[in-house]
Amino acid sequence: MAQTKNFRFEELLDKHHLKKTGARLRVLSMMYSKNTATSQPDLESVMSDIDRVTLYRILNVFEEKGIIHKVFDLNGTANYAVCHADCGENHHHDEHLHFNCTNCKNVYCLDDLHMPRLNLPEGFKADSFTLYASGLCPKCSKKSAATIN
Rank of each mutant, 00 (worst) to 15 (best):
K19A: 10
K19R: 11
K19V: 00
K20V: 10
K20F: 04
T21M: 03
T21C: 03
G22K: 14
G22C: 01
G22V: 03
G22L: 09
G22T: 11
A23R: 14
A23N: 15
A23T: 14
A23P: 13
R24M: 09
R24D: 04
R24L: 00
L25C: 13
L25I: 14
L25Y: 10
R26W: 05
R26V: 04
R26Y: 05
V27S: 10
L28P: 11
S29H: 12
S29N: 13
S29P: 03
S29M: 06
M30I: 12
M30V: 14
M31L: 15
M31H: 08
M31Y: 02
M31F: 08
M31P: 06
Y32W: 09
Y32I: 00
Y32F: 12
S33M: 00
S33P: 05
S33W: 00
S33Q: 08
K34V: 00
K34A: 03
K34Q: 14
N35V: 02
N35S: 06
N35G: 11
T36D: 09
A37P: 02
A37D: 04
A37E: 09
A37C: 07
A37Y: 01
A37R: 05
A37M: 09
T38Q: 10
T38S: 09
T38W: 07
T38V: 12
T38P: 06
S39C: 07
S39H: 03
S39A: 02
P41A: 07
P41Q: 04
P41M: 01
D42I: 00
D42Q: 14
L43I: 10
L43E: 11
L43T: 07
L43S: 12
L43W: 10
E44I: 06
E44Y: 01
E44H: 12
S45I: 04
S45F: 06
S45E: 13
S45H: 13
V46W: 11
V46K: 14
M47R: 03
S48Q: 15
S48Y: 09
D49M: 10
D49K: 13
D49S: 13
I50L: 11
R52H: 15
R52M: 07
V53K: 14
T54L: 03
T54Q: 11
T54V: 05
L55Q: 08
L55V: 09
L55Y: 10
Y56N: 14
Y56D: 14
Y56E: 14
Y56V: 02
R57D: 08
I58W: 07
V61D: 14
V61A: 08
F62I: 02
F62V: 01
E63Q: 09
E63H: 07
E63N: 10
E63L: 09
E63C: 10
E64A: 05
E64V: 03
K65E: 07
G66F: 12
G66V: 09
G66R: 11
G66W: 11
G66H: 12
I67H: 01
I67Q: 03
I67N: 01
I68D: 00
I68S: 00
H69Y: 13
H69P: 02
H69A: 10
H69E: 03
H69L: 06
H69W: 13
V71A: 15
V71S: 11
F72K: 08
F72H: 06
D73E: 02
D73W: 03
L74K: 06
L74G: 08
N75Y: 03
N75R: 04
G76I: 05
A78F: 01
N79C: 15
N79A: 09
Y80A: 01
Y80I: 00
Y80M: 00
Y80N: 00
A81L: 02
A81S: 11
A81Y: 10
